[in-house]
Write a protein that binds this DNA or RNA. Structure first.
Length: 791
RNA sequence: GCCUGGAUGGUGGAAUGGUAGACACGCUAGCCUUAGGAGCUAGUACUUGAAAAAGUGUGAAGGUUCGAGUCCUUUUCCAGGCACCA
């Protein structure tokens, strides 16, 4: 036979990827009667760097699952699109001096080609860019839905400003005080912006997440981000005044220990100060503090000033000084705290710096109050008593960290906000029939300047008021890219629909997503926004689901060979193209799976990849030992049965790395036999197909089966007759709990029989004396453990 | 500080409470070859030993159990996330 078979991955991959694409092999029949399975990857920003091996980790895993489910006779929807609107694309366009329209086209083409090269099975009929007019029409439509429900509103408030991107950004886009995109220090600016009222859905967001099949860490992240805390608001009266300062505390039991009040520099309580000298001093202080964002204020030094105001502790009438300090955040609680140096580290640090005394009033170790009226009473009881003692001066409340979602941007490359300003009629939403509001093309310089670039287009700005038909102007701000991606998953179901966001029946049928895969960096951004938008669309009757993603998994990061994050800066980016050229797409896919559990991060090691390439070569050479004549041997059938079972099990339990080992183990066994039956070979190709689609299709073709292997059903297990070998098992022997070898015994052999055998076995008869046996632990077919007295 | 994961050979990693290190990479030796960064065969946790074999061994210390990498308690270290959130 053909002895020197060489597997030519280039030739074979080029052949099949063309045929598959031409046939759109992975197209989904929306109206199929089979059970549906919707599996989705977080779609990428098609930035300029191209696809590297890290991107493919998640895509390969979903591709394997999609192919497996397809073979299990589900109608599988596995689509792909491009998150092309927004800062990543626009910044890339600016850097390369091109326009974002062209950049989007070029980059999406490149990304798509690389996915095709990697054999990722996508229904390309459903592809879209979020910057397509036919897509952002519906982004704007969703904005109007929110607007009409009162969930989209404009407000002047301190917002995060990135001085390099020249736009506002949301809280979720600020990472440790720096801009997520460019790493610049974020400033605080007081400007009018558009918000989505996500805070209205806090309770739903917190409750509904509990039942989702999501990684625990992600659920916890969202909970922390929402940051619910239950506490009490307390009024502290100002001496010689009718005014009060409202504070928020979660530790009302410490109120006796209050030795000062501190308010935020932005606090309205500053107006209570009447002393002119003091006002000057404080204005000076505020000037020094306020240009900084709350996030970037120095944490170690807690600066502050006495305001001259004296507050009265409502619990005991004690007079305490009021300070202004930059460690108090205006945006949380009431922007004022009761300072309890004895029981709060920050208060303690502030008190130390400003010479304020500290009174210990609670013993947290013992869980009791050790001061005043409630001395000796447990904290829980004291809390309630204090609250009722304070009566009208206190009120139980719940505070959250989550703020409303800031969605407007002073940038060009995004969906224009569909609002019109009319002198007569005020703020007017664009009528649905006028959508989409297109981005103007007549802007020469679209680069960010701090004011919305769209404002410089006359043709865009000048418009007729939809109500009174008088001249009016458009809102020149655009929507954040996270608005685009907060609903994209539902567009794949009916992507070409021009009349509605999606056919109602189809949306009902295909939602929710059964399996969602993507990076954990989206835990508090995209994933939270998508859940929110889904809940709004649900209330509007547009979708019938309450949660978009039933099951979520994160693929771990793939670092460069040097263990650092893959980046141009380090020169450690391994392109998908490089890996495919060297060893082929099938090897690349299998290697990425073989590296370890999917959720775990790993470093790329090209050298290790040779292992899976050797495997692929040996699979190719199986043709040499293909036995066309004889019937199945029992052992051959048993081997393939085991493989089918274990691959199914391991795909379903998401252990793709173990799948690869199982294939290798199987191959080792088969090579030992020097022959493989056609039936087993056929099944082997079938189970291998989700992992290595190219070589599987080629071998399928070679053995004369009908195109395509990827349209076949998952192989079934044939029952084999039990033979002699099946009658025996190797039973591990433990003596005093320690493994001492094993013996060959009949399957289902009982305990006393086994002991008889052991007593005769030359290896064990010296060690085992029947009369000394104290106890025997026996688990049929699993283990026998013999315990002696003298342990 | 808080939260979430981890810790198993030289490396990546396997292991429903039941033979730890599967499967690979690398390495060592041999075969084949003009050659090998190709292929094949054998070996490869550590210690002792020529070998047979014995002992030790899953970050550390305890505990539960006939039996623990796996369960419980304490602890150390590593990675990631959040953070003046009152």
């Amino acid at each position: 036979m053909k002895d020197n078979l060489e597997y030519n991955h280039k030739k074979i991959e080029n052949k099949w990827k063309e045929i598959w694409y031409k046939d759109n092999l992975y197209s989904t029949d929306s109206n199929s009667l089979k059970p549906k399975f919707y599996i989705l990857d977080m779609f990428p920003y098609p930035s300029g760097v191209g696809l590297h091996v890290g991107h493919l980790k998640g895509y390969t895993a979903t591709d394997i699952v999609a192919r497996y489910m397809r073979m299990k006779d589900f109608e599988v929807l596995h689509p792909m699109g491009w998150d092309s609107f927004g800062l990543p694309t626009e910044n890339f366009a600016i850097k390369t001096n091109k326009n974002p329209f062209d950049v989007t086209k070029e980059n999406t083409r490149a990304f798509k080609q690389e996915l095709i090269n990697a054999g990722i099975g996508i229904d390309w009929n459903r592809e879209f860019d979020t910057s397509d007019e036919s897509y952002y029409k519906w982004t704007q439509w969703i904005f109007l839905k929110l607007y009409n429900k009162g969930l989209a509103y404009k407000k002047k408030s301190p917002v995060n400003w990135c001085p390099s991107c020249l736009t506002v950004i949301s809280n979720e886009q600020v990472i440790q005080g720096l801009c997520e995109r460019c790493g610049s220090k974020v400033e605080l600016k007081n400007i009018e912006q558009w918000f989505f009222k996500i805070t209205k859905y806090i309770d739903n967001l917190m409750n509904d997440i509990k039942s989702l099949d999501w990684p625990k860490s992600t659920k916890v992240s969202q909970d922390n981000w929402i940051g619910k805390s239950e506490g009490v608001r307390v009024k502290f009266r100002i001496k010689d005044s009718k005014e009060y300062i409202d504070i928020f505390t979660t530790k009302i039991e410490t109120i006796y220990g209050t030795t000062f009040i501190a308010i935020a520099p932005e606090s309205k309580y500053i107006e209570l100060i009447k002393d002119k000298e003091k006002i000057k001093e404080i204005e000076e202080y505020i000037k020094n503090v306020s240009p900084q964002s709350e996030i970037t204020r120095k944490k170690d030094v807690k600066t502050g000033l006495k305001t001259g105001l004296i507050a009265i502790n409502p619990i005991n009438g004690q007079e305490i000084p009021v300070y202004i300090s930059d460690y108090i955040l205006m945006e949380y609680g009431t922007g004022a705290v009761m300072g309890v140096p004895a029981h709060d580290n920050r208060d303690k640090a502030f008190a130390k710096l400003h010479g304020i005394k500290s009174i210990e009033v609670v013993n947290y170790k013992k869980g009791i109050i050790n001061h005043g009226k409630y001395n000796g009473i447990s904290i829980d009881i004291a809390k309630n008593k204090i609250i009722s003692d304070l009566s009208s001066m206190a009120e139980k409340t719940i505070e959250y960290k989550l703020r409303d979602w800031l969605v407007s941007r002073e940038r060009y490359w995004g969906a224009p906000i569909p609002i019109i300003y009319c002198k007569e009629c005020g703020e007017v939403p664009v009528p649905e029939t006028d959508l989409p509001i297109l981005i103007p093309r007549d802007i020469k310089d679209y680069r960010p300047k701090g004011t919305p670039p769209l404002a410089s287009s006359k043709s865009f700005m000048e418009v007729e008021c939809p109500i009174c038909h008088e001249p009016a102007t458009r809102e020149p701000k655009t929507l954040d890219t996270f608005v685009d991606s907060s609903w994209y998953y539902l567009r794949f179901i009916d992507p070409k629909n021009n009349r509605s966001i999606g056919n109602n029946t189809l949306l009902r049928k295909w939602l929710p997503i059964d399996f969602y895969m993507g990076g954990d960096e989206h835990a508090t951004g995209h994933l939270l926004y998508s859940r929110f938008i889904t809940k709004v669309l649900n209330e509007e009757g547009i979708v019938s689901i309450n949660e978009p993603f039933l099951k979520l998994r994160h693929q771990g990061k793939l670092f460069g060979p040097d263990g650092r994050k893959m980046s141009k800066r380090w020169g450690n980016v391994v392109s998908a193209e490089f890996a495919e050229k060297t060893y082929g797409a099938d090897s690349l896919r299998m290697y990425e799976m073989f590296m370890g559990p999917l959720s775990q991060s790993n470093s790329w090691d090209t050298r290790s990849m040779i292992g899976v390439r050797r495997f692929i070569d040996r699979v190719w050479k199986l043709q040499n030992i293909l036995d066309k004549n004889t019937l199945n041997k029992n052992i051959d059938t048993k081997n393939i049965n085991n493989l089918i079972k274990s691959i199914s099990l391991n795909i379903e339990s998401e252990k793709y790395n173990v799948c690869v080992s199982e294939f290798m183990k199987y191959l080792n066994e088969v090579e030992k036999l020097d022959t493989i039956s056609k039936d087993s070979f056929r099944k082997f190709i079938l189970v291998l197909a989700p992992f290595a689609p190219f070589i599987a299709e080629e071998l399928w073709n070679i053995i004369g089966e009908k195109y395509s292997v990827h349209k076949q059903s998952w192989p079934t297990i044939i029952k084999v007759k039990e033979d002699k070998n099946d009658m025996y098992i190797n039973l591990p022997i433990q003596i005093n709990g320690k493994y001492r070898g094993n013996i060959k015994v009949l399957k289902d052999q009982e305990e006393n029989e086994i002991i008889k055998i052991l007593l005769k076995d030359t290896r064990f008869q010296d060690k085992i004396k029947e009369k000394d046996i104290r106890k025997v632990i026996f688990k049929k077919n699993i283990i026998i453990n013999i315990i002696f007295d003298d342990i």
